[in-house]
Structures are given as structure tokens and as C-alpha cells.
Amino acid sequence: MEVFLQQLINGITLGSIYGLIAIGYTMVFGIIGMVNFAHGDVFMVSAFIALIAFLILTSWLGITSIALALFIVLIVAMLFTSLVNWVIERLAYRPLRGSFRLAPLISAIGMSIFLSNFVQVAQGPRNKSTPPMVQGEFVIFTQNDYAVTLSFKQLIIWGVTAVLLACFWYLVAKTRLGRAQRACEQDQKMAALVGVDVDRTISMTFVIAAALAAVAGTMYLMYYGVVSFSDGFVPGVKAFTAAVLGGIGSLPGAVIGGLLIGLIETMWSAYFSIDYKDVAAFSVLAITLIFLPQGLFGRPDVEKV
């Protein structure tokens, strides 16, 4: 019971990070129908930007308040990562819009290889570890000498994720941009006819996706305290799994899928084998797609002749 509760807390934390990345996949897939393979690497780049911003703030500018530093790091990482993803969309995907389906996929795979190797060349191949940014924890209860704890950083991740998801939900559901996005998702040509700037909307989708990935990247850095150039692939694939599990194109689906994947992974590690935790996540993906191809909250895909 104690172990279960502790893993539940860990799983929700991990799931929040996956959920934030998964939204990026699901939004981009929803609007232009491509699997943005580079998204995991955008997440990794954002973690590096956060690391550099954190070092500048603490060691150069001498900011001692961790809360203020984290807040600024979050904003900086979101801004720069958005710029990165905006440029990627502009250079690598926009020229291929309306072209045949595999072209953007290959372009995205190329971009993913490019990004991880760029970071490797620019920042070096070694793991970058920071001293713990946030320390301390609540002990929820102790039973049989096993303390179930909720650390402050987990609490921060929950809080930041919740606040950002609320902002994001407001953006998509209530604003002009969100309406334009949903319109483009349904029918780009029709949306263009009624005056929606489709190119701009798609660009903004990439910007929002990157901003959420940057939040995930900052949280990841804070939680694990270490990042390397190859850290984009596995979280990327798992977040994509989450998006598919939740039903690709569905925003609440992405979040719930992320939480489920995070829980499956931590529970599997605790009760079965930590070596095969990735197999568990990938098997869930395969099983979902085979028996429930539209995911938990997705619309069924109707084929017309």
C-alpha cells in the first residue's frame, strides 16, 4: 500500500511531464496530420536552454531566490524554445505542406537527428548535471518504517502543470487563436476561405507546442538534475505513445494518456522489472493501437471511397 501510494505520486509527476510533451504531438498531428518526430528533441533542447539560463541566473547574476530563478528560467526556456520550433516549422515543414505524406515525416526525422547532434557538438557529449535546485519534502505518513513522501519539486511540477494546462485550455477554448486552430483542424481550405490565416495559425501551433515542451524540459531538468543530448528520443516516443493512447488529436486525451503512461511505467518498475519498463510502455502503445486504434478519446477514423 505504501509502495503503491509512493509510486502513484511518482507516476503522476512523470505523467505530467509526458502529458505536456504529448500535447505538442497531438496538436501538431491534429492540425497538419504529421508526426512531429523532432518534438522530443525540441524538449531536450529546451532542457539545455533551461540549464544555461539557470546557470546564468545563479552563478553570474547571483540570484539566490530559487523560486524567482525558476520562474525566470521557465519564461526564458519557453521563449527561446518557441523561437526554435517556429524556425523549424518555417524551414523544414512549411515547404512540404501539401506535398506527399512521407516527406514531412522524413524531414522531421532529419530534424530530430540534426537537433540532437547539434546539441552534442555545441555543448559536448557528456551528461550535464546540476546541483539539486529544490530540496525538501513532506512526509505524508509512515508505515512499517516506509515513509510516503511528496517532495517539493514534485509539488512544483504538479502545480506548474496544472496552471499551464488551465492557461492552455483557456487559449484553445476561448480565444480567437484557439478558434482558428480548431477550424484549421477540421478543414484548412474552408478556414482559409472564411478569413483564417492558416499559415500563421499553424506557426502558432508549433510555438505553443514548443512552449509546453519547454515547461516539460525545465521540469525534467529540475526533477532529475541531469540532461544529455540523447535525452530527447525516449521521452519523445513515450509522449507520443501517450498522445496515441489518449486518442491523437484530443487534448484532454493527451494529458490523461500522459498520466497513464507515467503510472504504467512507475508501477511496472516497482512491481515487475525496471529493465523492461520501456517495453511496458511500448506494449501499451501496440495493444492500444491494435484494439482501440482511435485511442481513448479520439474520433473514429471513417474511410470514404
Binding site: L91, A92, P95, L96, A103, P104, I106, S107, I109, G110, M111, S112, I113, F114, L115, N117
Partner: peptide, 10 residues
């Protein structure tokens, strides 16, 4: 290699 993939596709 990654850069060439993007360029050839475009």
C-alpha cells in the same frame, strides 16, 4: 546527415 535529409526532402 540530418541536415541533408531535410534539404533533399525540400
Amino acid at each position: 546527415f540530418g541536415f541533408a535529409m531535410v534539404l533533399i526532402m525540400i
